[in-house]
Nucleic acid binder design. Sequence first.
DNA 1: CTGAAAGCGCTTACAG
DNA 2: CTGAAAGCGCTTACAG
Lengths: 327, 327
Amino acid sequence: MAVTIKDVARLAEVSPSTVTRVIQDKPSISQATKKRVRQAMETLNYHPNFNARSLASNKTNVIGVVLPRDTDAFYQNSFFPEVIRGISQIAADHHYLIQLCTGKDDEQRLRILKDTILGRRVDGIIFLYGETDDPLVELAIEQEFPSVVIGKSLSPFISFVDNNNEKAGFDATEYMIQEGCSSIAFVSGRHQLFVSQDRLIGYQRALEHYHIPFKEGLISHVGEFTRERGYQTMKSIIERETIDGVVTTDALITEGALRYLNEQKISLPVITYDSNPPLLPMTAYVNIHTLELGRSAFQMLLKVIDSYNDKQMMCYRTFVEHSIVRL
Amino acid sequence: MAVTIKDVARLAEVSPSTVTRVIQDKPSISQATKKRVRQAMETLNYHPNFNARSLASNKTNVIGVVLPRDTDAFYQNSFFPEVIRGISQIAADHHYLIQLCTGKDDEQRLRILKDTILGRRVDGIIFLYGETDDPLVELAIEQEFPSVVIGKSLSPFISFVDNNNEKAGFDATEYMIQEGCSSIAFVSGRHQLFVSQDRLIGYQRALEHYHIPFKEGLISHVGEFTRERGYQTMKSIIERETIDGVVTTDALITEGALRYLNEQKISLPVITYDSNPPLLPMTAYVNIHTLELGRSAFQMLLKVIDSYNDKQMMCYRTFVEHSIVRL
DNA sequence: CTGAAAGCGCTTACAG
DNA sequence: CTGAAAGCGCTTACAG
């Protein structure tokens, strides 16, 4: 069997409780015994059993990260890896580990989240998406479990960190207008996602602000985030409307749309949202700073967890800056 | 406090041990009491405490996934998300959860892995890279901890699933030769990675097989996986050699290399390795089926864990097929 | 087919 | 400054 706290206690000639206190670096313990105990831990290569610790202290030092449904788009987009990287950079420094919650459909995802929350597997949750009426976020709220959404939620009971997507929508559109466009297509993802809704609102505000009439036909929600849908959507817009610029909200869609434009030898300014320079030739992109979203989310979650421990149940909101990068 | 097994036992008028047996669906329990207990669990919304279960049973139902050092390249490449997706698809069906092990440098990564293994946080480990002399893999071997490497390891004590990279190197090179190339540059990543070494061997074998002399100057290991390095490396090869084709091993490097070729208006056949169709125009790519690598790795790990429980300590090796896709 | 008891390896008041 | 004891919520022989 593995070496336990008792073995350390025996070797250091103290009681197990003292060993615990040394691990927690309690000021009450004398330097002398601290040293002796640490020495013993070293020679025995002692590492505390996390399951025992979690059970006794009701704290796991793990956070759960909830991914959206298993779709190609999510895994092909640089958002997921970047945000995970941001979260884990900060988490590692705070001695937190990350547990992933995914599943093939909503039922499996919900079951896994329930087991995770009710089974006390984690101290808090980060959701990697903000969506209307998401049963998983609702579960977290109902269970009063410390959580942060990366994206938006309408509930006043949950914390989130997000870009200011309305402003990001405005800024992208304004950029295009300043490039001389006046008939700008807006191609976005699933309408249930707040990010799609908000950027569209920003788009509309910008048109209004510059006294450009809004045309319903220029707007398209592709539903599914795939290259194919991007291609088809671009095609149908071009076939029915005359446009002089495009705003897209997702990398895969952009790729499909650009492929269509290339094939048709149509050259137009195109702007999209991303956190790394897009590979394909386009005019500009709005850097949404995904790494920072992840970092902020973890820091926020830590504060939320603390506040729940104090029975405060605070709710925080932050926006991460975006910036337009001309290519 | 949360509802425990005792509450369920009380409501169902059985002992706690019986509740456990019902959860485990032991055949010894009568259908009648099973029903009563399940009913009680339902009405109380009981979910077992995982920390208690793990402590008592010495089994966590979690596997650890170890990422390489925190580098841009790893997180910008589609390998990471795809392989995670493959692992989690199978894991979810087996009621396993995934814990990520990352860190900013090797020291932090090693500390985290030690805590994870010695602290009994997981039942097994999957390494997402194969590298010479990796201290983390060595730790797993030394601790006799059930592990699978996605990639290769020279140790006879560890299981792995990989592409046949020697053959993949051969096939890519052969493809280029059949396209009429005879002076083929080979641009690859860090030499410590087995994948770089093996594809290069395949490249050399192919040349030999087709009686094309090997030229040292056509080979380049870029060291760092960045677009910039890809660009510079392509540049220096072009400046000193005459080439008529390129084999690259990594997406970011390829992008850099292609950018240089485009700028110079040099048009050459280029082939690379990926698991999704590359965005940039190139001749073909070797699909390494990353999703399948992840799926196989998890299945293998399950077998390894079983074999360790039986004190067999089996060691498995599998190769996942690759396929060349002409674009 | 089921229960009582011991134990998993920690932590946390309580007491001194 | 330190120890003895109880407890966290399960599981697992053992016994009947």
